[in-house]
């Protein structure tokens, strides 16, 4: 079963306006690479120059924030769900 990757509104234009794309891979890194190969414009929004997940993007595998787990090495089960949500952040200074 394919993995579903759900995109936030800001990235939907990069994937043709859809809410989610199907992908394959055993780890989050594999799944993202599969998506980036088809939609190269998405990469810089999710991955920083050092190859890590962008500080202001939250990525969840099976509803768990990967930053609290194994990051890009997080295993993604067959038919699993990956959700990308940009931060809601700011402040007076």
């Amino acid at each position: 079963m394919p993995i579903k990757l759900r995109m936030p509104p800001i990235l939907r234009p990069q994937i043709g306006g859809a809410r989610e794309v199907e992908a394959s891979g055993a780890t989050l890194q594999d799944v993202l690479d599969d998506v980036f190969a088809r939609f190269p414009g998405v990469r810089s929004h999710i991955i920083d120059d050092a190859g890590a997940i962008n500080r202001f993007v939250n990525v969840y595998v099976q509803n768990e924030d990967v930053r609290l787990g194994d990051g890009l090495s997080t295993a993604v089960p067959d038919g699993g769900t990956v959700i990308v949500l940009p931060a809601m952040a700011g402040g007076a200074a």
Binding site: F56, M88, A89, G90
Partner: peptide, 8 residues
């Protein structure tokens, strides 16, 4: 900061 971090 609000402007720099406005992703929605």
């Amino acid at each position: 900061t609000d402007v720099d971090l406005a992703f929605w």
